[in-house]
């Protein structure tokens, strides 16, 4: 049984209702959860940056080694060197926050530049860019990262540059698709014929008005991916190195004690990774449905 009901509006009063009023409840929940996570991450990043922490994350307390959550003011307990896990979780955000933003910036700027070149110019530029993106796409990302790590040094910024670059093709193809869609509707040609300079058409009409929601969505998804990359590499020992905390190396360090029944040193960062990445992805998904519209409605 499907129900359809009409707003009791006067004749002449059927204007569009704003998107959040007609949105799926699920999408709104996704987006609010995502926004909550993003706020938490940003606030925690700032707290970490200004050292506004309950404990010093590097303070080794041999007397409090592996104490369970709640012991002596340690909210989430301590790790094998007696360091406060909660504080280390907050500081762990430093490991991915700026590098993640760098990755996102690279993928968005690189992607929209290539996308605009391919879509707006077309012809040879399009062919060249398509070959390039296919080449990048066909390379396993992890292998590329390991190559970079081996050639330079295991620095998170190098890794994030690679993550950003490997995300360029996705953004580029989305932007290009959007431009081709606009071109098909003669939209670009009409702007040219009005006498608008190419710069205005690209920056204002294409990127700002027609690609902004797409880019915001890609940014959230890209950030989630960057976090995943950082934590998994740090877990493997290629990313952030001890004693600097990262959620990845915290899980790794704690994993040795998991079997002894001391689950908290690994579980806390693992859950943090889970909820954060879920937050970014749900935010991207929800925004996609809200701003770009769901298919098959």
């Amino acid at each position: 049984m499907k129900n359809y009901s009409q707003r009791s509006g006067e004749i002449g009063d059927f204007s569009d209702i704003p998107f959040w009023k007609k949105a799926d409840a699920a999408d709104l929940v996704y987006v609010s959860y995502g926004l909550l996570i993003v706020t938490l991450v940003v606030v925690s990043y700032l707290l970490g940056a200004f050292h506004l922490l309950p404990h010093d994350p590097h303070d080794i307390r041999l007397d409090l080694m592996m104490s369970p959550p709640g012991t002596a003011g340690h909210l989430l307990g301590t790790d094998f060197m007696g360091r406060d896990i909660f504080s280390r979780l907050i500081v762990g955000i430093q490991a991915y926050f700026l590098p993640g933003l760098l990755a996102v910036a690279i993928s968005l700027i690189g992607g929209s530049t290539l996308g605009v070149l391919a879509g707006y110019r077309g012809g040879m530029a399009d062919t060249a860019i398509t070959y390039f993106t296919n080449l990048v796409d066909s390379f396993p990302r992890l292998v590329l990262i390991l190559l970079v790590v081996a050639a330079f040094k295991p620095d998170i910024y190098y890794i994030m540059i690679v993550v950003g670059l490997t995300n360029v093709p996705v953004v580029a193809s989305l932007v290009k698709g959007k431009i081709l869609f606009l071109k098909q509707k003669n939209f670009v040609e009409a702007a040219v014929s009005l006498g608008l300079p190419a710069r205005t058409i690209i920056l204002k009409h294409i990127l700002w008005y027609n690609c902004r929601s797409l880019l915001i969505i890609q940014a959230t998804l890209g950030m989630g991916e960057a976090i995943l990359m950082e934590t998994s590499l740090s877990y493997l020992g290629f990313g952030v190195q001890e004693p600097s905390p990262s959620w990845g190396n915290m899980v790794q360090a704690g994993a040795n004690y998991f079997m002894q029944g001391k689950f908290w040193p690994s579980t806390a960062p693992a859950l943090a990774i889970l909820f954060t990445i879920m937050g970014f992805h749900l935010l991207g998904d929800g925004l996609n449905n809200l701003l770009e519209g769901k298919r098959g409605r």
């Binding site: 359809y4 009901s5 707003r7 059927f14 209702i17 007609k22 409605r297």
Partner: peptide, 11 residues
């Protein structure tokens, strides 16, 4: 025969 406009919540 009616259709439904989601964005206007009207028939």
């Amino acid at each position: 025969t009616y259709f439904y406009s989601r964005s206007k919540q009207a028939f």
